[in-house]
Design a protein around this nucleic acid. Sequence first.
DNA 1: TTTGGCACTTACCAAAAGGTGCATACTTGT
DNA 2: ACAAGTATGCACCTTTTGGTAAGTGCCAAA
Lengths: 148, 148
Amino acid sequence: MSIDRSDPISSRAQTPPAVQRCTPTLPGFTCGLDATLRVIAGKWKPLILYFLAQDGPTRYGELRRAVRDVSDKVLIQQLKELEADGLVKRTDYKEVPPRVDYSLTPLGRSLAEALVPLCTWGTEHVAEVSQVFAERATWTRRERQPTG
Amino acid sequence: MSIDRSDPISSRAQTPPAVQRCTPTLPGFTCGLDATLRVIAGKWKPLILYFLAQDGPTRYGELRRAVRDVSDKVLIQQLKELEADGLVKRTDYKEVPPRVDYSLTPLGRSLAEALVPLCTWGTEHVAEVSQVFAERATWTRRERQPTG
DNA sequence: TTTGGCACTTACCAAAAGGTGCATACTTGT
DNA sequence: ACAAGTATGCACCTTTTGGTAAGTGCCAAA
């Protein structure tokens, strides 16, 4: 994953950059976006971060029920990675029926805040997005028909 | 993918919501974040959007060289999906050695702008992130050793 | 005494995502 | 005449990701 910006073929050159260029050369990553994406890659991670940002420390079971449709295996796994990445903190109360809760670290909180515009964008454009997905689902169903 | 917010077990209740709650019930999606994530799911999509936002209309070959390490198959595929989702526009000049370029639609441009904070976050925290990834790489290598 | 909840773990498996390599039809450069 | 570049398409294969179902040890309620 990397963006190569040393390419003089540029034959268009006049469109004004809608988005300011981010630091071009980071150690190991193309740009900040690249770095961020690696950290939040995982089906439920952004949702977990967002949930934790909204509701503060949350017990495992609650989280499990909150993020619907996720399996234990995957939820645990993604929590572990988030913990290893320094975004969430796991607190084990060492009690007898186990009690554990998860919360955001300052780093995690800052990431969750960076996620807000994405959430806003989605909310503002649900109409377009869900329409497109409805169409996709339609032909997907048609393509798939195996026997009848 | 869904977040269930009707859960009265809440035994913590006091942490102030660091992030304001986004519209809880959207048609088909949990919240805006969920909708957005489905649209940008794909290893290279955010990078493609971001690149296009920075550099304006770009020919296929240029894009291919810019987004390093991507294969033709996948790049084409993701471009098609982005096009189907109304985020990028494909222009075929119908010329004799083929000439095609890709650019953002207004919708795509707005998404790219929502991506900016993620890029910023990544840039500001490369240190933490790359350190973590270095460690991950280390034990991954150790775990894997099959024969020698 | 069986049942259920808690916070996980493990083995196994299916699907999705992505990559490789070859092909196309035409042109330009050597 | 032949290699290379253009923007793709396709068949095939590997890797990654996520899901299922079962089990763990301990305790409380039924």
